[in-house]
Simulated scan of single mutants.
Amino acid sequence: MMYSNSMILWTGALLILSVSLWSCTTAQGDGAADCCLTTSDRRIPQRVVTSFTIQTSDGACRIPATIFFTKKGFKLCAPFPSESNWVSKLIDQILAAPVSKARKPKGKKPRQQ
């Protein structure tokens, strides 16, 4: 069987179009938001928290919340600061804490001549 040049051209164009549409769809699907769906009023000790972020309900997320990040890499969902006094205090403590400086490498000190 022989295929005409126009048939090969249309097949190639259709293949290129479908691949480009598939890649656009895949790229847009990667933008899923990582939201807190519920919050817990259980107090979180300051010693385990490294930072925080505020989640608002006006974006992709449904509820306002405070997301605390722990030293072990966990994300803990707490109430919005205006809804809970302990959350406000914990945020103030994190912001007031001094920024830790980079450690100096351990080892022998270079000799001074």
Results as ranks from 00 to 15, higher is better:
M1H: 01
M1N: 00
Y3L: 15
Y3M: 09
Y3F: 10
Y3S: 10
S4D: 09
N5D: 12
M7C: 09
I8T: 03
I8N: 02
I8R: 13
L9T: 08
L9E: 05
W10H: 05
W10V: 10
T11A: 15
G12I: 09
A13I: 15
L14W: 01
L15P: 00
L15W: 04
L17F: 07
L17P: 03
S18L: 10
S18K: 00
L21T: 03
L21Y: 04
S23L: 12
C24E: 10
T26M: 11
T26P: 00
T26W: 10
A27W: 10
A27L: 08
Q28D: 05
G29Y: 08
G31R: 15
G31S: 12
A32I: 10
A33I: 06
D34N: 13
C35A: 10
C36S: 07
C36Y: 04
L37K: 11
T38I: 01
T39L: 01
S40N: 10
R43E: 12
R43T: 06
R43H: 08
P45H: 08
P45I: 04
R47G: 02
V48Y: 09
V49F: 02
T50F: 02
F52A: 05
F52W: 09
Q55K: 09
G59C: 07
G59D: 13
G59T: 11
C61R: 13
C61K: 08
R62A: 15
R62C: 06
I63E: 01
T66I: 12
T66C: 14
T66Y: 14
F68M: 08
F68R: 07
F68C: 13
F69G: 02
F69L: 08
K71Y: 05
G73E: 05
F74R: 15
K75F: 04
L76M: 14
C77Y: 07
C77A: 05
A78P: 04
F80N: 12
P81N: 15
P81V: 13
E83G: 13
E83I: 07
S84H: 14
N85W: 11
W86D: 10
W86K: 04
V87P: 14
V87A: 14
L90V: 12
I91H: 05
I91C: 05
I91F: 02
D92T: 09
Q93W: 00
I94E: 03
A96T: 12
A96L: 13
A96K: 15
A97N: 01
A97T: 06
V99I: 15
A102C: 03
A102N: 04
A102Q: 11
A102S: 11
A102R: 14
R103H: 00
R103M: 07
K104S: 11
P105G: 02
G107T: 04
K108V: 07
K109W: 09
P110T: 07
Q112M: 13
